[in-house]
Design a protein around this nucleic acid. Structure first.
Lengths: 351, 351
DNA sequence: ATGAAAGCGCTAACAA
DNA sequence: TTGTTAGCGCTTTCAT
């Protein structure tokens, strides 16, 4: 294909013309055309000081013309590291995870990493399958938000021992020493409770999520303790809903009972949606008919008028925190660490 | 490490105990311990008929105990194919893409593929960077929803020529012969228009998206043509909003003007959110005060009471259609094909 | 400044 | 039935 008598330029023009049909351009091919060894070409391409400028110039010119791109498979095999990070979540169809993943992807990209999304469907078995994939594909690291039923996290910890950092976020295991990054659940509930106390709400309907989840337990505990601490005489009617629909049904029942609550606290966006649906169904107008306070990602509260007052749990911010921790782990930080993202209150007009 | 005089069992027990510390288990190691050649071990593991049952048994037992897992990097290098599929979208923070990606991930997983998520931020330059990554990482295939500013799709087509199927979805390029999968935009707008005509709405406020987008143009055209076709005498007040906030402002202005519209048509979820915020702000109650009809993914309409009537554009369904097309391409289907997902009307109580 | 060669872990054609 | 060997494309050490 290359003519011995021709100079470089002629070759280049010729080759550029047929570049589209070239099945694979690799170091060997470049080396052959330039009458250089593979190692010299390799070095030239990465600006190794041993290579002469003239050689570098030639090599780079040809590689550009032929649109050489290194074979990442080979690099992976050789170096045994990849630039991919696994993200295992119950589902991405959730405002919080969406914000988290969207933000995480941006962080990853600017740092040269790609994100592999794996959904467990809240099924521990699929979660383990996904983890296995992360291991088999030798991901650089893994982010995990565990399912509500995950009991065993030894497999996760084992990965971490094999030099693949595992960082739990949001839904994290309870007791183990591992890397965790989550919103300050207790804090958010405490701030919410303090807001209710400050506004002298006395008849509070508090709707929490599935009581099996540690996030629910934490928020419930902090919520109650805050009322206790301030020696509030408010009456708290606490309930637990696992879905938007459950929250809707509960709310419909409570709003037509007496005494009607003067405020409702929603632990999550899912619950808020159900609650607001009930409030609209009955034609109530916050805050005069009833006050509303939620813990939320911040997107849903803007759908309503007045906009719902909420304590923010930002997925986007959490992602940045999580990724910085991942970078530290990738750089060699081995000890487990638990990071908390502080909560802030965002005033709407519903309280 | 292995004792010549020991039987297999003893070895196994010993090795299991230290398995956690074993840096890497590979074919060579297994072969060495069993006094077999690497190729025999490789064949045994994949049930090659040439290998004796007894050998297979031994090999599998040891590989299980040592938790052998093939090195995917090596397999990739050898076979030159990966099981990863790139997904390039402007942003995942959007109900439609979220539904699409969530569903696509499920399809991918059951077919043994993983999804790499890449966001362009609606920036054509980042979009190209992302495409390059897909190429460099030799993805099995790529799904793309182009940015609103993407003019050049030759790079995409080039990938497709290099045996990496590229399937455009939702936001697809206008004229070129390429693989496209999208919702029947004209259909959805036509169905919406027919519904308005059937209900004899006369004073219609129609809010469309950014007029630069082909999706807006298509929907606008079909919408108008349908009214024309039925020789409707309805008055259509058409507007274009690029964001939720714009839709809110527009709606606030229109609702206080006279004559007030008897129905509002929203081309997308973004617009619907702004419109509903205005309706709630003014305390209007659909459908008596004003009718509402949207084109929507189907999630947002359930937030309100009565639930909003909408023409569905299902991201989840589109994902299944798109993935089946991808499988066909991966199996060798080369010719370009344009697939449309039919729209259906979902009755709420807002019209 | 450049080249030769080993080797990453696996597959598969060929040999025995 | 099992073993030997070449090779995927790259990096890197050790010559020259």
């Amino acid at each position: 294909m290359s003519c011995e008598k021709c100079g470089l330029l002629k070759n280049v023009v010729f080759l550029a013309a047929i570049a589209d049909d070239m099945p694979e351009v690799n170091l060997k091919k470049l080396a052959g055309m330039l009458n250089l060894s593979i190692s010299t070409v390799s070095r030239a391409l990465k600006d190794h000081p041993d290579v002469s400028d003239e050689t570098k110039r030639k090599v780079k010119e040809l590689s550009t013309v032929l649109e050489y791109e290194p074979n990442t498979f080979a690099i992976h095999l050789k170096t045994n590291i990849s630039k991919e990070i696994g993200v295992i979540v119950p589902t991405i169809s959730n405002d919080f995870y969406q914000a988290f993943i969207g933000s995480l992807e941006q962080e990853a990209r600017v740092n040269g990493y790609s994100l592999i999304i794996l959904q467990s469907g809240d099924d521990p078995e699929i979660e383990l399958e996904n983890l296995k994939r992360c291991k088999q594909n030798r991901m650089a690291g893994v982010f995990v938000s565990i399912t509500s039923k995950t009991k065993e996290i030894s497999k996760f910890l084992k990965l971490a021992n094999e030099h693949i950092p595992v960082i739990f976020f949001d839904k994290v295991p309870a007791f183990e020493a591992c890397n965790k990054v989550c919103v300050a659940d207790e804090d958010a509930a405490r701030i919410a409770a303090e807001a209710l106390i400050a506004r002298k709400k006395k008849n509070i309907l508090a709707i929490f999520g599935n009581l099996q989840l540690s996030i629910t337990q934490k928020r419930l505990k902090a919520f109650n303790e805050t009322f206790h601490k301030y020696e509030s005489d408010a009456c708290i009617d606490a309930h637990y809903c696992s879905s938007t629909d459950e929250a809707f049904e509960l709310m419909m029942g409570r709003l037509t009972a007496s005494p009607a609550p003067d405020v409702v606290f929603c632990m999550s966006d899912d619950i808020l949606i159900g609650v607001m649906r009930a409030i609209q169904t009955l034609g109530l107008r916050p805050p005069s008919d009833i006050g509303i306070l939620a813990i939320s990602e911040g997107f849903i509260p803007t759908f309503y008028y007045p906009q719902v007052t909420y304590v923010e749990t930002s997925g986007a911010k959490l992602a940045r925190l999580a990724f910085s921790r991942m970078l530290a782990c990738l750089a060699g930080s081995t000890y487990a660490q638990e990071l908390k993202l502080p909560s802030v209150m965002v005033e709407g007009g519903s309280l």
